[in-house]
Amino acid sequence: MVEFLFIVFAVVAVGSAAGVVLARSPVGSLLFMVASLASVAALYVLLEAHFLAAIQVMVYAGAIMVLFLFVIMLLNLGHDYRRDLRLTLTALPLFALTGGIAALLILRFRGAEQAPIYRFFGGGDAIDAALAEQGAVGAIAHPLFTDYLVPFEITGILLLVAIVGAMALAKRHVDDPVPAPAPPAEPLAALDASAEEG
């Protein structure tokens, strides 16, 4: 059953990843991306990473993709259906190189579950024990707040810097030309006139 679900979600993840590349409109790409992220979250569940699956759906598929959608709608790009795929000669060898590295990775790790290095680390049993003892969140939170506390704090600073940087980059500068405001309609004058008549 687990294998069957794994194959189903893997096919959906890879298929919608292809959709991201092939969809014409940016909004279509984005929706395919959400499908891909959600199926990868399902793969996380099948790999017993329940907390990461929840984070993936909430942060990635929720927050980050909504940010992308905001930008697409803010820039009014949702109506751009022109095909912008560009097939060049340099892209093909680069893609072949990436595929070669991927194939090397697969060959290197094929059937590696029984390799001695994984038995040395305790393998899945150690994680199962940690999950049973501390729960899905505690199993990650405990190393995060003890062994990895300094990287965690640095990540917090990184987020602050990202907020400040994003605002500094995206705000309109004072001396930028401001688009002319729409001429105000005059409902109040009409209202006053009707009030005086009445």
């Binding site: 893997a10 590349v21 790999l47």
Partner: peptide, 29 residues
Amino acid sequence: MLTEALVVSALLFAIGTLGVLLRRNAIVM
């Protein structure tokens, strides 16, 4: 399940690379 997950991961990475190389829309890249 390790091998299957790595295969999916490699495929997703290769498709992502293809997208960065082929698409011209900055947001899709």
